[in-house]
Write a protein that binds this DNA or RNA. Structure first.
Length: 620
DNA sequence: CCCTTTAAGCTTTTT
DNA sequence: GCTTAAAGGG
C-alpha cells in the first residue's frame, strides 16, 4: 500500500462521500456518526480504515479494532475493508463481536485474575445444563422443577450479574460463580457470556499494564450499530479505552433503536458524547430508498423525536420513483390472493425472489402460512428464513456446503480457496508454505472426497444415503478436530442437533429440486425463494420490494408499553425497501376465532399512510 | 373426561 | 392482544 498524505487521500473504488462522511473519515477526534437507513455506515467505516492505513495515521504496526454485535456484520465489514484496501491490511483490521473481544481478553490474560477467580483453561461457554446444575448444587431450589422457562434463565443471569469481582462472601451468586469457574461434581468449568465480559472488564480494570498494552495495540476503535449497545458492552469499551489517546468512531441510528427490550442502553449516544468528548455528525443521503419512500421516512421524523433533520434520496432516482401501498381487506384469504398476484407480477417483471421480502412484526408462521401456500400454488417459493439463517452460519454447514459445491462444479476458485484455507486452519496445517508435504496431501485428500461425492450424487435416493454422505464428509474433517477447533460444538448435543437438522432440510431441498444437486444447493441457500422474517431479523438488510403483513393492533400488542420502540420497528420495516413497500391490514385473520381486528393503537401509522400523496390505498 | 380458568410467551446475539 | 398449554373444577 502506497502511503499518501491526508490531503492526497481519496476514497477508494470511486466511492463518493458526502461532506459529513468525508469529515467523519478525516477527523482525529472521537466521533459519533448518526446515520439513517441506507446512509452507508459500513462503507464509511471501510473508507475510514482505508484512510487510516494509507496515510499511516494508524501507525504501523498498530491496528484498528472494529466491534460489532453479530458475526456476519463483523465478517462483512472485514471483507469490505479488504476489498477497499487489499489483503495486506488483513492482519491489522481486527473485526469481531463484543463477545469475541471479551473472550479474547479473558483467554489471553486469564492467569492475571486473582486466585480463586480464575476459570479453568478449557471452560465451556453458556452450557444451560451446567449452569442449571450449578444453581442446584449451590442450594437453589427451582420452583419449576425440571423445566427451565425463560424467566428462570433471566433470574440466573440476574443473580450471576449481581456478583462483584473479586469473589468474596457466601451468597447464592458467589457460590454459583465458584462452581462455574472451576467445575464441580461431574461438571466442567462453564461461563455464561455475561460472566466472560465481567471477567474481561475486571482484568482490564485491575491491571494497568494490560490496559496499556491493549491501548498500544489498537490506535483506532470502530463501534457498529451503536444504538444497540448494552450497559455491559459500554462498560467494556469504557474500561478499555476511556481516557486513552485511542480514537473512537461510533456509528448508529436512534431511529432504528429496536433492542431496548433486550437491554440496549437508552442513553448510550449521550453518554458516549459526554464520556469521550465526541463530536456528533449526521449523514443526510439515503442511498437505498426511492424518493417517495424517503419522503415517507421523513414524515415519521416528528413521531420518532428526530429533529427535522435533512434526508435526501440519492440522485440515481427520478423524483417520482418509489411505490407505497396500503392494502385493507376483509380477511386474510383476500389478502393472500392479492399479495400472491402482486408478487407474481413483480417477479414476472424481472425482480428476483430473493430481492423481495415478506416482513412481520412477530410470529411469521402465524401471519404467512396461508400466503406461503398461495404463492406455492402460483409456483413462487417463499420461506421463513429463521432456521436457514441459523444453519447457514454454522461453520460445519458452511464446510459441508463448500465441499458439495465443488463436487458439483470444480471451477469455483473462490470456494476452493475458502475450503483450503479453512481446512488447513482446522487441521493445523501450515498454510504459509504451500509446498510442504502435509499441505499437498491435504489437497489430494480434499480432491478425493470431492470425487467421491461427485460419483455418489446419482445414487442418493433416500434420507439415509444423504446422511451417510454428509457423515462421510464430516469424517474427513474429523469430528473431534471440528469440536476442538469450533469450541461451540464441544458442549452437549449441539453439534449433532445442527448436523441432523441440516441433513433433514437438505433432504427436503433435494426432493423439491427433483434430485438436481445444483438446484438443491441454490435452494438451500435461498437463491430461489422469497425470504420471510421478523422486522428484527431484517435489520441491516435491504430489498427491492417489501411486503409487511399485519399492520394491526394485535401484531403490535405491546405498543402502549413501548410506543417509541414500535414506531422505530415500523420505520425499520419500511426503510428496508428500495423501490416499493406494501402494508396489509385485514378485518378477520386466521379463521375469525376472535372479533374483528383493530387498528386503534397504531392508528398513527394509518393516518400517516393515508395522508395525501403518500400511499396508494386499496380496499378489497 | 370435559369445560373453564390461568399463566406464559411473543421481538436477539454472542464461543 | 391473542394463542397455546397447563392446571383446576365439576
Amino acid at each position: 500500500m502506497k502511503i499518501v498524505s491526508p490531503k492526497e487521500w481519496e476514497p477508494s473504488d470511486n466511492v463518493h462521500l458526502e461532506r459529513a462522511a468525508d469529515e467523519s473519515v478525516r477527523t482525529k477526534e472521537n466521533i459519533l456518526v448518526v446515520a439513517g437507513p441506507g446512509a452507508g455506515k459500513t462503507e464509511l467505516l471501510a473508507q475510514k480504515a482505508g484512510y487510516l492505513f494509507s496515510t499511516n495515521l494508524c501507525m504501523y504496526p498498530r491496528k484498528i479494532l472494529a466491534i460489532s454485535f453479530k458475526n456476519d456484520a463483523a465478517d462483512n465489514l472485514k471483507k469490505r475493508v479488504i476489498r477497499r484496501c487489499g489483503t495486506e491490511v488483513e492482519s491489522r483490521f481486527i473485526s469481531m463481536t463484543y463477545d469475541a473481544f471479551a473472550k479474547s481478553i479473558l483467554d489471553r490474560f486469564r492467569l492475571a485474575l486473582p486466585t480463586g477467580n480464575t476459570p479453568a483453561a478449557d471452560y465451556l461457554v453458556n452450557d444451560d445444563a451446567t449452569i442449571d446444575a450449578a444453581f442446584k448444587d449451590a442450594g437453589y431450589i427451582s420452583p419449576y422443577g425440571e423445566q427451565r422457562p425463560a424467566r428462570e434463565k433471566a433470574f440466573y443471569e440476574k443473580i450471576i450479574s449481581a456478583v462483584k469481582l473479586p469473589l468474596r462472601g457466601d451468597d447464592l451468586g458467589t457460590k454459583v460463580w465458584r462452581r462455574l469457574l472451576l467445575g464441580f461434581g461431574s461438571y466442567s468449568s462453564c461461563l455464561s457470556f455475561k460472566m466472560i465480559s465481567m471477567l474481561a472488564i475486571y482484568i482490564i480494570q485491575s491491571n494497568r499494564q494490560l490496559k496499556k498494552a491493549l491501548r498500544l495495540t489498537y490506535s483506532h476503535i470502530f463501534l457498529d450499530e451503536f444504538q444497540d449497545t448494552t450497559d455491559q458492552q459500554y462498560d467494556l469499551v469504557k474500561t478499555c479505552f476511556f481516557g486513552s489517546t485511542c480514537s473512537l468512531t461510533a456509528v448508529g441510528d436512534n431511529k432504528q433503536r429496536i433492542m431496548l427490550w433486550a437491554g440496549a442502553r437508552k442513553t448510550v449516544f449521550k453518554d458516549f458524547l459526554n464520556d469521550f468528548h465526541a463530536q456528533e455528525k449526521h449523514l443526510i443521503t439515503n442511498h437505498r430508498s426511492a424518493p417517495r419512500l424517503v419522503n415517507l421516512q421523513k414524515a415519521m421524523y416528528d413521531s420518532l423525536n428526530e429533529p427535522k433533520g435533512q434526508v435526501e434520496a440519492s440522485n440515481k432516482w427520478n423524483p417520482d420513483d418509489g411505490k407505497i401501498t396500503l392494502l385493507i381487506t376483509r380477511d386474510n384469504a383476500v389478502e393472500e390472493e392479492w399479495l400472491a398476484t402482486d408478487i407474481q407480477k413483480c417477479i414476472a417483471g424481472g425482480t428476483l425472489p430473493n430481492d423481495i421480502c415478506i416482513l412481520c412484526k412477530q410470529r411469521p408462521q402465524d401471519y404467512t402460512a396461508g400466503l406461503i401456500s398461495k404463492l406455492a400454488s402460483k409456483n413462487v417459493r417463499a420461506r421463513i428464513e429463521t432456521e436457514y439463517q441459523d444453519l447457514l452460519k454454522e461453520p460445519i454447514v458452511v464446510l459441508v456446503l463448500s465441499l458439495l459445491k465443488l463436487s458439483i462444479d470444480k471451477k469455483r476458485p473462490d470456494v476452493w480457496e475458502f475450503l483450503l484455507k479453512e481446512t488447513s486452519r482446522l487441521k493445523g496445517i501450515n498454510q504459509d508454505n504451500t509446498q510442504n508435504d502435509s499441505y499437498y496431501k491435504m489437497q489430494e485428500d480434499i480432491l478425493g472426497i470431492i470425487e467421491h461425492c461427485a460419483k455418489s450424487f446419482s445414487k442418493i435416493n433416500s434420507f439415509e444415503c444423504l446422511s451417510a454422505l454428509v457423515y462421510k464428509i464430516i469424517d474427513y474433517f474429523d469430528e473431534s478436530r471440528i469440536k476442538a477447533f469450533y469450541t461451540s460444538y464441544r458442549q452437549g448435543k449441539y453439534f449433532d442437533d445442527k448436523v441432523n437438522r441440516f441433513i433433514k432440510l437438505l433432504w427436503d431441498a433435494l426432493k423439491t429440486a427433483k434430485f438436481d444437486w445444483r438446484k438443491t444447493i441454490e435452494d438451500f441457500e435461498g437463491i430461489n425463494s422469497i425470504p420471510i422474517m421478523t422486522i428484527h431479523k431484517s435489520k441491516g438488510l435491504e430489498y427491492s420490494n417489501v411486503y409487511f403483513v399485519g399492520l394491526e393492533d394485535s401484531a403490535f400488542w405491546n405498543f402502549k408499553n413501548q410506543p417509541e420502540e414500535d414506531r422505530c420497528a415500523f420505520f425499520v420495516a419500511l426503510s428496508r425497501a428500495k423501490q416499493s413497500v406494501t402494508f396489509t391490514y385485514c378485518d378477520y385473520r386466521n379463521g375469525m376465532k376472535h372479533p374483528q381486528q383493530k387498528r386503534n393503537q397504531i392508528n398513527e401509522f394509518f393516518t400517516l399512510l393515508q395522508s395525501p400523496g403518500m400511499a396508494n390505498v386499496i380496499q378489497k
